[in-house]
Design a protein around this nucleic acid. Structure first.
Lengths: 335, 335
DNA sequence: GTGAAAGCGCTAACAC
DNA sequence: GTGTTAGCGCTTTCAC
C-alpha cells in the first residue's frame, strides 16, 4: 500500500492549516476567502485526496451501518427486498451489509458475530432461523437495535409483517369460488411464524367456505424447488383438485413434479403460489399468486429501524402490511 | 444514542490500564497473569463492551472493505456469484458491500462515488455499464484497485473471465450434431464484451460445422425475460430450427413467447441457454445450457483482487476459466 | 478569515 | 506482567 494522501498533505500543498482544509471541504467554505478556497480545492484535486472514512466516522459517527440477514439471496423475494433496502440506505448515506445465511444456522451465528464486531448500528433480520437465544445473547446484550420480519414467534422487538393470514384466505376463497372443495396446502416442514400464519389462514378460509379441514390434504415439504417437486408425488395420492403452496419457489418445483407425473396445471390441479415473484408470469401456465407489497415492506422496515436506532427507548411496534391476490392461469373452474 | 462503553470504562472497572485491556482482548492474553485476565474478561462482559470499529480500524487498517457492483442482484447468476464472494470475504475478515446497479448508469455512478467516499479498498466490477470514463475518473484517480468481469473491452486492469467463445461453440456443436442446420442466436441489443465473445464463438462454430452464417438468424433483444418473449415473434419468422440464447433469463422469456405462439420446445425449436442457473432443471422442458464455473469465478476474482490490493504494482493479469455444456431436454434431433 | 489545540477510541512500542 | 506514551487522520471549538 502506498502511503495515502492525508489532510495534512493537502494543507501543506495549499499552504494553509489542516483545519482550514477540513472546514472548506465540509460545507463551511463560505467563511473563507475566495482565494483560500481555490487553493484548497486545487490542492485536493491535484493530490487526489479522499478523506479517510474511519478517521472521519470516528468523530462524526454520521455514517450508519446496518446489516441485513436474509435466508437466501437467490430467492427473488429476498433479492427484491434487498434492492429496496439498498436503495434507501444509499439515499440516507448509510451502509448496508447484506448477508445471506443460506439456511445455515452455523453460518448465521457467525454472520451475526461479525456484524457485531464491526459495531453495526442496527440489523434487519429476515431470516427465520435466528432464534431467541441469539437475539438475547448477541443483540440485546450488545444493545444493538434490530427489526424482525418473517420471524419465529419472538415477542421482543419491532416487527414488520405482511398479512399472511389474509393471504392464504384470499387464495382459498379464490379456489373455493372456482368450485374446488378439496383444497390441499403444501406447507414447510419447519415453518417459521409467518408460514404458520398462512396455514392458519388456510384453515380459517376452508371453514368460512363451508369446507372441511382434512389433515391428509396438508403436505409438508422442504422450502425449495426440490421440496415442491417431491410434494407432487404426495399430492397425487390425495383427492385434492386444487392446491395452495407455501411460496412460489415450491410451486415451481410442484409444476415440474406434476409434469413428470403426467399431470397438468390447471386441468388436473389448480395451483396458487405465494410471493408473486417476477417469474410467475413466465411459467407455463403463468402462476396465480399472492402478492406482498415488497417495496413497501423494505421501506417500512428501513424507516422503522432508523427510528429505533435514533431512539432506542421508543415503544415496540408491530406493523402489518396488506397483501393481494394476482390472478393468472394456473387456476380453473372445477368441471 | 446512549453513551457507548469504551475501553476506558472497562479499564476502570477492572482496575487496570487501557493497554492491558486492549492487549488481553487482542490475542496477547498469555502475557498476563490469570488473575488480570479474568478481571478484564469479566469487566468486558459485565459492561457489554464492544470495540469501536472505526477507532480500531483507523490504527490497524486490518479490515478491508471491498465493493461488488453487479448489474442485477435478482439474476440468479449474480446472486450465486455474490454468495461466493461474501463467503470468502467473511472468511478473510473483510467487508463486502454489494451493490446492484439495475442497469441504471446514473445509479451506478452514484454507487461508485459512494464507495470511494467510504474509502473502499478494492472493487469488483461485474457490471458492463461502467465504462472507461468512470474508471479513469473515479478509480484510477483515487488509486483504487479494481477487477473486471464480464466487461466492456477495457484494456486496463485485471480481468477474470469465463470462456464465452468456447461456450457458444459448445452450444452450436451440440445443435449441429443433432442435425440442425439453421441455428439462430438471440443476442443482446447492447452486448458487453463477454456477450460479443459468445457471438464470435457462435459464428466460428457455424463455420467449423460447415454451416453458413445468416444475418437473419441473429435476433437482437433486451437482456431480460421480456426481451426473450419478444424475440419469439421474430424467431418464428425465420427458418431456424434451433436457437442459442444469450443467457438463461432470455431463454425463459423465449419459452413463454413460443408457448404463446403455440410453438413447442423442443419439437418446433431446440433451445440452448447460457448460465446454467438453478431454475433450468425445473423448466418445461428442462433447459440445456452452458455452465460457467461460478464459484471458481468468485474465488478467483476475490483472490486476485486481494493480491492486487496488497501489491498494486503487480503486472496485470487476465484469467480465463473453462465452461461446459449441460444437456437437458430442450434440444432434439432434427427429424 | 484562519489556525492552534484538544481529542474521538483505540493500538503498539517500549519502558519499568 | 503491566502501564506510559505517542499517535492513527480527522473534526471542532475557540482564540486571534
Amino acid at each position: 500500500m502506498t502511503n495515502r494522501v492525508t489532510i495534512r498533505d493537502v494543507a501543506r500543498y495549499a499552504d494553509v492549516s489542516m483545519s482550514t482544509v477540513s472546514q472548506i471541504l465540509n460545507g463551511k467554505a463560505n467563511r473563507f476567502s475566495n482565494d483560500t478556497r481555490q487553493k484548497v480545492l486545487y490542492a485536493r484535486d491535484a493530490l487526489g485526496y479522499v478523506p479517510d472514512f474511519n478517521a472521519r466516522n470516528l468523530i462524526t459517527n454520521s455514517v450508519k451501518t446496518i446489516g441485513v440477514i436474509v435466508p437466501d439471496i437467490g430467492n427473488p423475494f429476498f433479492s427484491t427486498f434487498i434492492k429496496s433496502i439498498e436503495f434507501l440506505a444509499m439515499e440516507q448515506n448509510c451502509i448496508s451489509l447484506i448477508l445471506s445465511s443460506n439456511d445455515n444456522q452455523e453460518l448465521e451465528r457467525k454472520h451475526l458475530e461479525q456484524l457485531i464486531n464491526r459495531s453495526i448500528d442496527g440489523i434487519i433480520i429476515a431470516s427465520p432461523s435466528i432464534g431467541q437465544t441469539e437475539i438475547d445473547n448477541q443483540l440485546k446484550k450488545n444493545r444493538i437495535p434490530y427489526l424482525l420480519i418473517d420471524q419465529n414467534p419472538i415477542a421482543d422487538g419491532d416487527r414488520v409483517m405482511t398479512d399472511d393470514f389474509n393471504g392464504a384466505e384470499l387464495a382459498v376463497n379464490h379456489l373455493a369460488q372456482l368450485g374446488h372443495r378439496k383444497i390441499a396446502m403444501i406447507m414447510a416442514k419447519k415453518p417459521s411464524d409467518n408460514l404458520k400464519r398462512r396455514f392458519l389462514g388456510y384453515k380459517q378460509a376452508l371453514n368460512s367456505n363451508g369446507l372441511e379441514f382434512d389433515e391428509k390434504l396438508v403436505i409438508s415439504t422442504e422450502m425449495s424447488k426440490i421440496g415442491g417437486m417431491n410434494a407432487a408425488n404426495k399430492l397425487i395420492k390425495t383427492d385434492a383438485t386444487a392446491v395452495l403452496t407455501v411460496n412460489d419457489e415450491v410451486a415451481i418445483g410442484l409444476y415440474h413434479g406434476l409434469n413428470l407425473l403426467g399431470k397438468s396445471v390447471p386441468d388436473d390441479y389448480s395451483v396458487v403460489g405465494y410471493d408473486n415473484i417476477d417469474l410467475d408470469e413466465y411459467l407455463a401456465p403463468p402462476l396465480t399468486s399472492i402478492s406482498q407489497p415488497i417495496h413497501e415492506l423494505g421501506a417500512t422496515v428501513f424507516k422503522k429501524l432508523i427510528e429505533r436506532i435514533k431512539n432506542p427507548d421508543l415503544p415496540q411496534t408491530e406493523i402489518m402490511l396488506p397483501v393481494k391476490l394476482v390472478k393468472r392461469n394456473s387456476t380453473k373452474k372445477l368441471s
